[in-house]
Design a protein around this nucleic acid. Structure first.
Lengths: 203, 203
DNA sequence: CACAATATACTGCAATATGCAGTATATTGT
DNA sequence: ACAATATACTGCATATTGCAGTATATTGTG
């Protein structure tokens, strides 16, 4: 049982889902905490069935069938064990920052473009989650009694996205002052901010 | 060529490294932008050699040998292509937030513990990067002429870590007000913050 | 100075996860 | 009527992880 297995099990604990519905739900909300491929979301429930944590049956809509998955009592027990287990450390992959680290191999233009692309991605996520929250505040949550969880979760995402957007602005101003990507050693703006951030931590 | 391959190639562009050194460097600084396993860091340079982007030779220290990798001209060209290519979207995996989303299956105590563990992990990273930056500000960067890049990169990490630490404080207060993890619908504190964050975006 | 602990320096392998192509039916829009 | 899009998956090659295993070098401690 991987974390992804538990994620699917936790969804099945709410109601029965078809494979396709699981992929859609993963895309709509899970992805902000646990981004996984569509492919995996089709595989996981099958594994749960093998382990006895879910049952499956085919449902027909016309000439086409789909697999419906339901949690079992053992599945609910397994979920309880997960809740009590140790958590995993967070993992943050930002390719654009990798490019920044090695930006002296390219031009300032390349670096600016990379930042613009990061900004577009973050903005997209930010907009999507703001919209989702707006619908939740209007009472549109699919499980109204669970709204408090989704909303607390969303405040995390929104605060992080805002921070990233602010940093991109800062970084853009900084880079605009660079004549080239190379040989600058340290610059006044980054030195000032770094000292501020460090003092803030160990005054 | 994967992004991880380019990450190693970018390191080789600075100087020759042994396999072991690459794993250490990945652990020290790359991990904040591109966290990859030690195992992969041993495999990637071999792939680069196969592709002609690096050369390798064995060096002996006593009775033990180690593999030293060096970039080739073709490798430097490949690196240039990467710089000009499209970036990848960021990917943020936080298992504790997945637990939050499904926290109604467990107790408030489980949820609090999960937040404590997240806080410990973030604090550890935060401390590590503050310390690294302090040494850089003192002129201790391994490639002094590249300090501006590391420092700008670090400001990102530190701002994000600070935001997460603040959110954990907020979430702790919120959860302390919950009599249970279930059936709360929306709460005043989260509703207020969500409206604030949404207005902040679309005033 | 002996010896334990830790650091250096990897490799093999099973399990996990991704991305893409392929297949087919149902619904919606023009 | 027909094209585009949504629904509903599966197979396969490749990427990545985690863990166990192997071996030598260095450092710290009693």
């Amino acid at each position: 049982m991987t974390t992804s297995s538990y994620a699917v099990l936790a969804l099945l604990n709410l109601r029965p889902w078809t494979g396709y519905e699981l992929t859609q739900q993963a895309q709509r909300s899970l992805r902000y905490a646990w981004p996984k491929s569509e492919r995996l979301l089709y595989s996981e429930p099958k594994k749960l069935v093998e382990l006895g944590y879910a049952t499956t049956h085919k449902e027909k809509s016309g000439n086409r069938s789909r697999n419906v998955y339901e949690i079992t009592t053992e599945g609910r027990e397994a979920l309880g064990e997960w809740t009590r287990s140790r958590t995993q450390p967070p993992r943050i992959e930002i390719e654009v920052l990798l490019r920044l680290l090695f930006a002296d191999h390219g031009s300032t233009k390349d670096l600016r473009r990379a930042l613009d692309e990061l900004e577009a991605d973050i903005r997209e996520h930010h907009d999507a989650i703001i919209e989702l929250m707006a619908s939740y505040l209007d009472g549109g949550h699919p499980f109204p009694e669970r709204t408090h969880l989704s909303v607390l979760f969303a405040t995390f995402q929104i605060e992080v996205f805002k921070t990233i957007e602010r940093w991109i602005e800062f970084a853009r101003h900084e880079i605009d002052d660079w004549p080239t990507t190379q040989d600058l050693r340290i610059t006044p703006r980054t030195e000032a901010l770094t000292r501020l951030l460090a003092d803030d931590r160990h005054p």
